[in-house]
Design a protein around this nucleic acid. Sequence first.
DNA 1: ATCAGTTATTACTCTTATGATAATAAGTCA
DNA 2: TGACTTATTATCATAAGAGTAATAACTGAT
Lengths: 243, 243
Amino acid sequence: MDEKTFLETYRPADYPSVALTVDLVLLGVVEGRLCALLQQRGEHPERGKWALPGGFVGEGESLDAAARRILAAKARMSDCWLEQLYTFGDPDRDPRMRIVTVAYYALLPASAFAAALGEGGDLVLAPLDVPWAGEAGGPVGALDGSGAPLALAFDHGDILGHAAKRLRGKLDYAPIAFSLLPPRFTLRELQDVHEAILGRQLAKPPFRRRMIDQGWIEGTGEYETGAAFRPAELYRHIERKGD
Amino acid sequence: MDEKTFLETYRPADYPSVALTVDLVLLGVVEGRLCALLQQRGEHPERGKWALPGGFVGEGESLDAAARRILAAKARMSDCWLEQLYTFGDPDRDPRMRIVTVAYYALLPASAFAAALGEGGDLVLAPLDVPWAGEAGGPVGALDGSGAPLALAFDHGDILGHAAKRLRGKLDYAPIAFSLLPPRFTLRELQDVHEAILGRQLAKPPFRRRMIDQGWIEGTGEYETGAAFRPAELYRHIERKGD
DNA sequence: ATCAGTTATTACTCTTATGATAATAAGTCA
DNA sequence: TGACTTATTATCATAAGAGTAATAACTGAT
């Protein structure tokens, strides 16, 4: 039997099948803090707890396409950084049934969240609380406006942990910081993004040199306005082949 | 309605469901080359082509557990490096039906492959052909004994590509090289592993210093035997908390 | 108009990591 | 005994990095 005949007569056997979702970690840096978009669940299970935006993967839909679809529903931004993160499939991670979720993360400038947050009720951009240093890894929490921890649904604290770890690992090797900034930014703003991701302070002169030597940015010759003191030069990210 | 009642009366809706598999990239370094275990397919589709070992995820089985189960079937080694790699879910990646696969990679010393390879026929430990430098990424091929490329099934060339890229990225930050070596090894053998993963030559004195300064290895005071020339000292990996 | 106050930017120094070369040590085999 | 090969150590030169200090630019009060 050749392959064509095989496929024409093939009937899917009774393999165990699972429900497949994509969950999205939408990240931004606001006031020097790394934040994720969370949605309060209105229904059981885990009603009232805070969850990552997500949804089921459609029949003929690729994983990347599902992630982009969910992203488009929450943020008015098409060309942002979007990357697969990790897949979570513990049998009891959802009490309803076997649900396997492929987590993605997206990086957005703070302005991209305005539309979704303004629409109303159940969305927050919550600062993350990373309880580990360096790239140790582990679950990560989220805080409300007063700094109190939010109750996270399912294993979404683990998902946030993977996202935070991935960001810290990539920061020096991929131009991810620029996806969290507006098109033009000062070196101080760039440093704020780095510090928010790394969770620690950086010295200014070495940081400035590293960024300029790296070749990922160039000065625009223009300067910020409205600053109380000496205005900083505005830089832009240089798009390069291979990004 | 409280959560308990909700769950007791919950009936899974008609969400699209998919078949879920785990595919394993079993990696070793043989004669200074990075190799992966491949299995020749005996049935349609892709009959005759070479595929990664894999299998369906069981009903109540976690993804990690499925990976360990498949690993145990191919290698006599329980405590090796095993890590999730990436999830592939293009709708048409398998012509039979929608199959989403979660790829894992495992690192084994060359000796761990002997049993599986000896049993017979359809398994090979194929040297990888990485056509890109650094961490550019992209598909990776596999070679047969004479250096000719093997035909890979499905998207398994892409999976090998992700594995090679992950290894190159982790090599300096995680003690992965030692999982590819016997418990005691010479610095030359350690360097061979690094060169196989990176795909390029390294200078010996700086490499030696880096390894010793890193603190991941310690000398045993013993020396290799049977060498034609001056025997090298045997080192061992120091297990540390946080690995 | 001047000056204190604040931040941006650059200059300089010092330390550490990295890379290449050479010298020495320890074995095998003719 | 000595040529040969590899392991190991020493030395030097260069590059990358962190920390401190000095200078520049702007606001707002005096």
